[in-house]
């Protein structure tokens, strides 16, 4: 009995920090979409810098993927309480939930910049740079307000 009580106590202690709510699926989903963006930006950035040989088809696929990500509904990824003050494993700041309209407007800005990239990517390596700066500007503008610096 004593052993059972101890085990129960230990289990409670381990579980306590995560007790609030389990948002691991949401974190994986939203962080995964940013990973997809980074990988494809890497392809385009590598071509813009001349580190990767320009390939119109591969550039177009990367740009199309950026647009595809921009069309994913963000609503299910950001449940209330999944901010960095409430849970571990995220840098999403509470301001997201205080200014949801602005947060979603910044996501739309990313989508528009991705469309510019979609037009440019297939036309040549030199067209990628300016479009990439535009996409990057939308990333930073959101990170500036809503992601905790490391």
């Amino acid at each position: 009995m004593k052993r059972f009580a101890l085990t129960l106590a230990a289990a409670t202690m381990v579980a306590a920090p995560a007790m609030a709510q389990d948002f691991s699926a949401e974190l994986k989903a939203r962080q995964g979409q940013f990973r997809i963006m980074a990988l494809n930006l890497g392809v385009l950035g590598g071509m813009a810098q001349g580190k990767i040989e320009y390939d119109a088809e591969a550039a177009q696929e990367a740009a199309d993927t950026l647009v595809a990500v921009s069309m994913i509904s963000q609503t299910p990824h950001w449940p209330e309480g999944s901010d960095n003050f409430s849970i571990d494993g995220t840098r999403a700041m509470p301001a997201i939930w205080e200014n949801t309209d602005d947060f979603l407007a910044k996501w739309s800005d990313y989508g528009e910049a991705a469309l510019v990239m979609q037009e440019a990517a297939g036309t040549g390596a030199e067209a990628i740079g300016p479009a990439l700066r535009q996409v990057g500007g939308t990333c930073s503008s959101c990170h500036d307000d809503y992601r905790e610096p490391q």
Binding site: L39, G42, G45, G136, D144
Partner: peptide, 19 residues
């Protein structure tokens, strides 16, 4: 551009610096 070598992007005050 604000892009790190692995294509994360600058955030916080550094995003303003990159502007």
């Amino acid at each position: 551009t604000g892009f790190t070598p692995d294509f994360d992007s600058a955030g916080g005050h550094m995003a303003r610096v990159v502007e």
